[in-house]
Design a protein around this nucleic acid. Structure first.
Lengths: 226, 226
DNA sequence: TCAATGCTTCGATTAGCATCGAACTATGAA
DNA sequence: TTCATAGTTCGATGCTAATCGAAGCATTGA
């Protein structure tokens, strides 16, 4: 009966946790693939596909085909604006996501985000690599420096192998618990794998927690220099 | 798992049609009662009560008790901002509400909105009353002028009787089909009643359409002076 | 005190939607 | 061609949330 712009339809599209996660991930302005968005949202690819179809139909996101990937971006700056206003409101009214209970601060310290390290140690890793000038972060994203390439081979990471994959080598991922970036991308994943291989850390089964051994912790801090 | 402001929760609150209708009605900045909001949303009082409880819990609206009424207002300017951005998006992507089909333009011409006249003729009525300086509209709302009070009694409306009701005498109501205001409140309702009584118009059963007779139409236009 | 009005709570129903397993399509690589 | 990867479609399941009727408070007015 009522006429006018249908707020509810748009808001409902942003009102599902999985979709909201995808959209916040896209706020960086970078285009992400369906699989990456599924990871961000914490759902299976099928579910993500269904969500993305809805977002696309609602013109909230725009797909771009490239090879066998589909990259998605937000359909315009107004979407970012909306997300930001909503974040502000959520913040004001104290609607923050269930913080991981005080009983497992481990999760906040070090956890996997997809396949790379997140949490305080993830942020520390990012900062440390930047301080050593192994990575450089600018508006276009993150990239390895020549010194960083050097370090990678010394640390036992096969960069050439990684480059063959279609996945970007370095990618920033916003860590909400720390409100700072940590390192994603295939290089970020390779680093974590290397930590496992070196015995510095291992994953706690059935959880996202990454548990460092005492020795591993020491070596980790040596690595990033603090 | 993810942390940070919970956009989805806020967006979901705005993402229900009934609630969105209530909130847009509140965008005028005026406080409305639960019953009025139920009308705006097109739901029963029980349903509205449930929605309002949710909006209140989510701190989107703020209640204020006055007598046996509960007046609601938006909890802050950020809510208005959010609604406006969402309207912009909805507009851009063409998510407009199902416009009443071309087969019944009558509905767009004259219909009841709760108990007062809406549609093109509702807007014309509002403009006409303002042009004759019978009502005055400013930031605080609409009010009858001394001349308007005069007119009301001549037109057979018992203003004193209306004043006894708790309902505001005059209220602006945004008409989306015309994107302009029409007159609500008990005076607006009384005018429409008078149109019925005078035989100028009658309601089409089972619909919101108000059908004016040819003679009624003439007299209506005489009244508002165009 | 009784009646009327405004609003809420309770309970039952219904509908929609998110989710995932399994199977299918499409693109690229060997 | 064959295999692997990225993504989608289909179908089934289960949960959540909107809705309203009926009954209950609470406030006001007579």
């Amino acid at each position: 009966m009522k006429e006018g712009p249908d707020i509810a339809r748009v808001a409902a599209l942003l009102g599902d946790p999985a979709r909201a996660n995808m959209l916040t991930a896209l706020m960086s302005g970078r285009a992400l693939t369906a699989a990456e968005l599924a990871q961000e949202a914490g759902v299976t690819p099928q579910t993500a596909s269904s969500h993305l179809a809805k977002l696309e139909a609602g013109q909230i996101v725009v797909p771009r085909k490239q090879g066998r990937h589909r990259y998605f971006t937000l359909s315009g700056p107004d979407i970012v604006e909306a997300l930001e206003v909503l974040m502000g409101i959520a913040n004001r009214v104290g609607h923050n996501r269930v913080r991981t209970g005080p009983k497992d601060p481990e999760l906040r310290r070090a956890r996997v985000c997809y396949d790379h390290l997140a949490g305080d140690m993830g942020v520390a890793l990012f900062d440390g690599l930047a301080k050593r000038k192994w990575i450089e972060s600018d508006l276009n994203g993150v990239a390895l420096t020549p010194a960083g390439i050097n370090f990678a081979s010394e640390f036992g990471i096969d960069l050439d192998g990684l480059r063959k994959k279609r996945r970007p080598l370095c990618r920033e991922c916003l860590d909400w618990s720390a409100r700072q970036s940590h390192l994603a991308g295939s290089f970020g994943a390779a680093l974590l794998d290397r930590f496992y291989d070196l015995g510095w850390a291992k994953r706690v089964p059935e959880s996202r927690i990454v548990r460092f051994s005492d020795a591993g912790k020491r070596q980790f801090h040596d690595l990033i220099g603090d």
